[in-house]
Design a protein around this nucleic acid. Sequence first.
DNA 1: GTTTAGGGTTGG
Length: 472
Amino acid sequence: MTEKNTKTTEYKYLKLNELQANTTVNVFGVVKFARPPTKTRGSDFSMVLSIIDPSLHENDQKLKCLLFHREKDKLPFLDVGKIVRLHRLKITQFHGDLQGQSGPGFSWLAFDEDKESPTRPVSSSSNFTFTEADINRVKELREWVASRDDLQQPNKTCFADMVPQQYYDVYCQVLATCVLEENVGFLLRVWDGTKPMNPVREFDISAADLVVDKRQDLLDVAGNLALDVALYDDHYTTGKNIKPGQYIKLNNLHAAKFHSADTRPELSELPMIELVIHRGTAYGRGVHLINNDFVGLKTLKERLEKVSEEEVEMEVSCDLPSQSQSHKSRPHEETDQSDSQMSQTIARCDVPNNKNIAKDLKISRSSRHINHYFCPECSKDSQCEMEYIFMMRFLLSDSTGELVANVWRRDAVTFFQDITPVEMFTESVLCNLVKKGLGAISTPSGPWFECCVKSYRTLSGVRYQIFDTCLV
DNA sequence: GTTTAGGGTTGG
C-alpha cells in the first residue's frame, strides 16, 4: 500500500444510499450478512457480504458485496453486527441492483461492534490509514448497532440460548466426527461449554463398523456438554475434512424438534431437539473451519477453559455397615429453618473392615461414561466397585436451638425427588435442579421448611438424620 | 490487471 506516508490523502466516504453504478468508492458499513470465504473454481477465494448503514437499511435494503482474494486469510471473517471500512470498492449493477466488488487496490478494515472494545481494527494489509475521523465514525456506527436488536445477538449465540425451531450461528470446538451415511450424513460431536435447555438428540457412535475420529481427552473434559450436530448433503464433504480439536463456526444451525420414542418425558417436559445443518447454502448455511488465532474465538476459548477447570469435590470412604446401621430410631417431626448447608457426593463401599479411610478425590466433569472407582482398601482381585451416594449435612435452627442433621443414601435421593447421584453427574438439567434446590434453602435467612428428623445413638453421642423429606 | 460468483424464505 502507498497510503503510509501520504498525509495529504484524505479519504472521502459515501453513505450507502449515495452510491452510483460504475464508480469506485470508500464506505463504512455494518455487516448484515456474511458468508465466509470459500474456494472458487477459479484461482481465488470469494465471499459474499451485505452491509447496511443508517441511510440504507429499511425494507431489507442493503449493499451486497462480492470480494475475491487469492489467499483465504486476506478476506475478512465477519459476524453479523461487525463494522467494516472498505476502500476502493467498485460499484456495479447486477440483476438490477447495485453491487460492491473488490477491484484493484481494494482493502478492508473490520471493527468489533462492542462499545467497550478498543477501536483497533483487523485489516487486510499491514499499512493502513486510520484517523481520528475513522474512530468517530466507528463509534457512531457502534451506537447505531447497539440500538438494533437484530444486529447484536447472532454472533454471541451459544448452545444454551437455543430454542426449538430456530436457526443459529455458533462457534464451537469439535470433539469427534463420524460418518452417519456415506456421502449423505456426517456427524460432528462438538461443545461450546454450554448446554441447551432442551434435551438434544444423541447418536450412538460406538458401533464397530462406524468410521469415528475422536479426541478422547477432549470428550472426557467436555462430558455431558458434548452435543451432536448432523451435517447433510452439501456439508458432508466439509465435515469429512474437519479434525477433532479444531474450532468451527456452524452457520444456520437448525434446532429442529426431534420426535422419537426414546425421549424421556419423565425427566423433562421440554421437547427434544436435534441439531442439523440442512442441505443447500441458503442463509449462509454451512460449516466453516476457524483459524486457531482468530480473535472472534476469544469468548469461546475462555469459556471452554473455565469449564474444563471445574471439578467436583469427592470424598471416598469405606466403612463398616453394621456400625453405621446400629442406631436406635426415635423419629419425631420438627419444623426447622435451614441456616447453612454443605453437600458432598461420596463414593462409598461397604466392606467388613474396621478402618475408616477418607481420601479426597477430584473428578473431572464426565458423563456418558461416568468414572468408576474401586475400593482402595479391598484386595485388588475382588475389584470392589464403589457406589455413588449423596452425603449432606445441614445446620438446622429454630427459636429453640440448633442441630446438625445428615441426609444420605436413599433418604438423600428422596430428598432430591428421586434424582440419583449418578444422574446428577450425567444430566445437567437435573444437576441444575439440585443446585437450585440447595441454593434456595441455603440463604443466610433461609426459608422455613418442614422436615422429618430422627435421632440415634452412636459411640460418640447422639446424631440426627433427616428422612422422608422432599425438597420442593 | 482475467476468472471465479453474484446470499435466499429452511428435512433428515
